[in-house]
């Protein structure tokens, strides 16, 4: 037989426990965290029948420096590869080898130019660069 005082003590414990668990003010803590993402519209730069550009890039390679856009090839065009971690987010390069005819570069490019990567002005094609390596320079916003 349960002794009355133990019954009372048990009931008291239950009541205290109920009170404790019903007031979890310090037993839980919550906060709201921010999440973010930025999605950009793709702008395409398609190299088609630009003879000087094709000649420039026919046998050269595109110097690696960084990437912020994708490059997709068509037909027999070799698709340039990618490198990550661009050094300058405002002037980024795509890297790889191959013909650029029919190649489409998708990204937020404001302008695309060709040069040897050494002090070339945007929009100027330079066939006599010091390195002999042709680069496609894409300016991004």
């Amino acid at each position: 037989m349960m002794r009355p005082k133990r019954v009372l003590a048990g009931l008291g414990a239950i009541l205290i426990s109920s009170w404790l668990f019903a007031a979890p003010a310090g037993a839980a803590n919550s906060l709201r965290t921010g999440g973010s993402a930025s999605i950009s519209e793709a702008a395409s730069v398609t190299v088609v029948t630009n003879a000087p550009l094709q000649i420039l890039l026919a046998s050269g390679s595109i110097a690696p420096s960084g990437v912020t856009f994708t490059v997709a090839g068509s037909g027999a065009v070799a698709v340039p590869g990618f490198v990550s971690a661009a050094a300058d987010a405002n002037s980024l390069l795509v890297s790889g080898n191959g013909l650029m005819t029919g190649t489409t570069m998708n990204g937020e490019a404001l302008s695309v130019s060709v040069g040897d990567g050494i002090g070339d002005e945007p929009g100027q094609a330079n066939t006599g660069g010091n390195t002999g390596v042709k680069v496609v320079v894409a300016q991004f916003n």
């Binding site: 003010a25 310090g26 037993a27 839980a28 803590n29 919550s30 906060l31 965290t33 921010g34 999440g35 973010s36 993402a37 930025s38 999605i39 950009s40 519209e41 793709a42 395409s44 912020t68 856009f69 994708t70 998708n106 990204g107 937020e108």
Partner: peptide, 22 residues
């Protein structure tokens, strides 16, 4: 008796920037 639990946010969830597919 235990100290109240606290929660500190050290950084938010940032997916960064991306270009959507075409």
């Amino acid at each position: 008796i235990v100290a109240p639990i606290t929660l500190t946010e050290n950084s938010t969830l940032r997916f960064g920037s991306m270009v959507k597919p075409t």
